[in-house]
């Protein structure tokens, strides 16, 4: 059990110099000091690899890496690691998400080795939505370890070449950049920064946050993060996402646990269809989506001004087409080439 403030134990012997932990594009972009852009791909509820390839093609050139969700909202989908391998084959770098809900420590470590063997270089360690929200509510959840313990486990695998049990990994640990999530909008607020500090101390290299809509609360959160110097220990990417409709904005405000959508944002989405005939569904849809993209672009421009923030993570759920116009509109296109 170690204290955040405790100094790192001295290395027994000088470790071989490895310039990068994983060598991933995302790691090199962050190391070069570029404002990173990642986006999210949701795999299909089928074995259709074409869906992955099509979604990946929409993101090519606009992002530094693409997250692949892991049975998100506890709904069974094509595996994140298999999807990640498809992305690797296509030349788009994946960030494979892995939850503690579906795997014990044996399965996690086995799958992490498998992911690395398939050329995957980034992993995002997550608790996972509760199965009662998904399509197998009668399933047994695992939660053998939690997300912070998972971050620590992956770090020890990578940096010390050890399995969680302490046994050596033959040939060394998997070169994986370690990500974790943070939700600045869940409660208790004071504990949110503490939890980020724990994830940094456990060994997270980067953080992707929950969708940010409430800019003032996020600024307050980031101020505390910077005050504690956490932004220097871990690269923080703010989660953003375009709203598709006023209904979606209201749903996220009222129904999604751990999500804060200000009334002003909802009102803006509602006003987007002012003057558009209610029966013209197509025109309303387009007006909403255009406003959703506009709001998202404005948010990214505001976020870029916040001290300590190192990038954005765009979650355009089942709307990957929106990523390119958002990245372009925010002045983040084309993506710079990382230095080697």
């Amino acid at each position: 059990m170690d204290q955040i403030s405790a100094p790192a134990p001295a290395a027994q012997a000088p470790a071989p110099v490895r310039r990068f932990k994983s060598g991933s594009n995302l790691e090199r972009m962050l190391a070069a000091g570029h404002f990173a852009v990642t986006a999210e791909i949701g795999p299909p509820k089928s074995h259709d690899a074409e869906v992955i390839r099509r979604k990946a093609a929409l993101l090519e050139g606009c992002v530094d890496a693409a997250n692949i969700t892991d049975n998100q909202t506890a709904v069974v989908r094509l595996s994140s690691i298999a999807s990640g391998a498809i992305l690797v084959g296509q030349g788009l770098e994946p960030v494979v998400q892995m939850t503690c809900r579906d795997r014990n420590r044996l399965a996690m470590q086995s799958d992490l080795l498998g992911a690395a063997a398939l050329g995957i270089r980034n992993v995002l360690c997550l608790t996972g939505d509760h199965q009662s929200h998904g399509n197998h509510p009668g399933a047994k959840n695992v939660h053998d370890i939690d997300s912070i313990q998972m971050v620590r486990m992956v770090k020890e695998m990578r940096d010390e070449g050890l399995f969680q049990c302490g046994e050596e990994i033959s040939g060394g640990g998997p070169p994986l950049l370690i990500g974790a999530a943070a939700n600045p909008f869940a409660d208790p607020f004071e504990l949110r920064v503490h939890r980020l500090a724990k994830k940094a101390a456990a060994g997270a290299d980067f953080i992707q946050t929950q969708l940010v809509f409430d800019m003032s609360r996020f600024r307050e959160y980031m101020k505390r993060v910077v005050d504690l110097g956490l932004h220097e220990k871990v690269a923080i990417l703010a989660g953003v996402g375009p709203l598709k409709s006023a209904g979606m904005a209201r749903h996220m405000r009222d129904k999604v646990p751990g999500m804060v959508v200000p009334d002003g944002t909802v009102a803006r989405m509602e006003a987007a269809v002012d003057g558009v005939a209610a029966e013209d569904k197509q025109a309303r849809r387009e007006a909403w989506r255009a406003e959703g993209i506009r709001i998202c672009i404005e948010q990214i421009r505001e976020l870029r001004e916040i001290e300590g923030l190192r990038g954005v993570h765009i979650m355009a759920i089942e709307w990957e087409e929106a990523v390119r116009p958002i990245v372009e509109g925010a002045g983040l296109f084309p993506r710079p080439a990382p230095e080697v």
Partner: peptide
């Protein structure tokens, strides 16, 4: 969980 609340606590 052993290390604090998940992101779903509100």
């Amino acid at each position: 969980l052993m290390n604090g609340p998940c992101g779903g606590s509100q």
